[in-house]
Nucleic acid binder design. Structure first.
Lengths: 337, 337
DNA sequence: ACCTAGGGTGTTAGCGATAACACCCGTCAG
DNA sequence: CTGACGGGTGTTATCGCTAACACCCTAGGT
């Protein structure tokens, strides 16, 4: 039906209509100072009339710069990573950057390398890798130098530019909150130990206990799922000396909550529980869950900032940022019975 | 420290090294038939030696084609949309397409129009809009014709290319499953009514009841949250005649499960519950939740296929695809007491 | 032996933008 | 009155690639 769609207007078309050279159009577009006001207006009018939009490919070709950022992320729907990604896309979009997402099934060396290659093919301005566990962090060794790169949620032990949630601080707060309520000590249900998030939370928890001179119970290792939280909870529920539990995320806490409930141990009357992440449902758990809320939007902003610094300046002065999460007090914490 | 990084090798560099013209290199790259095998090998070797990678901007400039797909999605972490997006990114990546995601805070006309504009600036090959509610669907009227566009989860009432989960079929199966267990009728806790997903599920539920000649109870309207499911559940729990509930998603079901539990109504002994989505935690609810599982990967594949058809052929023969979800039977359904 | 077909290759001309430079013209200092 | 300066503009080259065409040369039909 359609006529073969005529090609989009180019700069020369605008130039012709405005009665100037294409170079003048380019100047207007790039806000060069040396353009007479009247000319500027004529050009703008022509742009509007034709519905002209600059061709990014052409611009990228000549400048060598692209307004695309590549993100490598695992193909998961875990709340933390998903929120981070979503927040980053929004932040980048507002800054005028497109985000090209390369999803990866598993965070191993080959997959990450392949995703990075795809992004390099697209000549992205820089790359963000959400690398929450050690295999992902290892894979970053392969990323060629010279390509601006920021790691999010990655290995705090590496010198690469990195933005993270301050896991330890959040865990410290959570633990201290429980101790302040009067508990003798605080048990911990941890996420998978090869995740930096989980490791950081273990560390903060331990530090808080040590600072208060309390005994440090053994860590209950789990993955991030409600299922594993439930299993850990079943063990904890059977131990009468357990009166306070800090869980590495809200889903684990959910599992613990259920296990306690089944065993007839009331939360928070008999046992207090604190989670981490503040998932949207957390306020509606039974009881509403006290938890630690990371500010993903802030992490996203810092990440973008760090990346853009590298893009424009080659490297950045202070290549690590850490965002302190806040405690959200709800109804799952009380003094011990 | 670094020397000003030398420019990336271009096609002419490869050509010089291989002792051919740059056009021959181009032919090798694009698998043209008329290249002698020996030449082909020489060129490939040169490509490898230099680490040459074609410049997409240059190619896009001359062909007018880009290997980027724009996606417009709401900035939410709801399980369904998030899974869809993630699956689509993976599918597109495997097909050699980059995905540029434009997140939008709210799915209104202006935001969507702005996101679409950003994508057009990037000269994407096509656009996918995840438009699960009516305001989003309305906004699509503004999208200029001629740009390949596929809607996911959008308005089944519109003639635009669309891929959806067959909500009605899933809801029908869920309801029938409950009726087959021997229940007199099935109550329904619905998602927000301006979401097509929710509307389709209501419809399938109603059809199943009518087909079986059963009474159709009033719809319990909710949003997608566990909180609202809990509220609806509190009402249902108080009504002894309620023995079977179909919830529009798993989080609603979670809320209902809790409400029942608190009220002392055992699931599935006293009340049977079925959800929708099969979130990862569903198997670990108490009891493990019988639910409907949509195949997001399939939706993603169909979406990509439909889009690419439009890109290459201008339009597609059969511009609607619907993916039937399957019932996953777990332990939350039993015959009435 | 001659012409044609077509495989294999090189040459040239863009795609649509920016960069670099050239040029015109007033203004102002000497 | 003249030369230097610099604002405003146009011209030309260039980015790295593909499309279109030109050109060889060999093989096969007559």
């Amino acid at each position: 039906m359609d006529q073969k769609t005529t090609r989009d207007p180019a700069m020369t078309d605008v130039a012709r209509l405005a009665g100037v050279s294409h170079q003048t159009v380019s100047r207007v577009l790039n806000d060069h100072p040396n353009v007479r006001e009247q000319t500027r207006l004529r050009v703008r009018a022509a742009i509007k009339e034709l519905g002209y939009r600059p061709n990014r490919a052409a611009r990228a070709l000549v400048t060598g710069k692209t307004y695309l950022i590549g993100v490598v992320a695992q193909n998961s729907t875990l709340y933390g990573p998903a929120s981070l990604l979503s927040a980053f896309e929004e932040a980048a979009g507002e800054a005028g950057f497109g985000v090209s997402v390369g999803r990866v099934k598993v965070l191993d060396r080959d997959s990450i390398a392949a995703a990075v290659e795809r992004h390099r093919d697209q000549r992205v301005a820089g790359i963000v890798v959400i690398a929450p566990n050690s295999s992902a962090a290892d894979a970053l060794a392969d990323v060629p130098a010279g390509l601006p790169l920021v790691t999010v949620d990655g290995d705090p032990g590496r010198p690469t530019p990195l933005v993270t949630v301050d896991q330890a601080s959040g865990a410290y707060d959570a633990t201290e909150h429980l101790l302040n309520a009067g508990h003798d000590t605080v048990w911990h249900v941890s996420g998978p130990t090869d995740w930096f998030d989980a490791a950081g939370r273990v560390q903060g928890w331990r530090e808080a206990l040590e600072a208060a001179g309390k005994e440090v119970p053994p860590v209950m290792a789990a993955d991030w799922s409600a299922a594993s939280g439930y299993k850990a909870g079943q063990m904890l529920a059977r131990m009468p000396e357990v009166t306070a539990v800090f869980c590495s995320n809200d889903h684990l806490a959910l599992g613990v909550l259920r296990a306690m409930h089944e065993r007839g141990r009331r939360v928070p009357h008999d046992v207090s529980v604190v989670g981490f992440d503040d998932v949207p449902e957390a306020a509606y758990f039974i009881p509403p869950l006290t938890t630690i809320r990371p500010d993903f939007a802030a992490v996203a902003r810092e990440t973008l900032g760090l990346l853009l610094e590298q893009v424009s300046e080659g490297e950045s002065a202070q290549p690590r940022r850490s965002i302190k999460p806040v405690l959200v007090a709800r109804d799952s914490v009380a003094p011990p019975a």
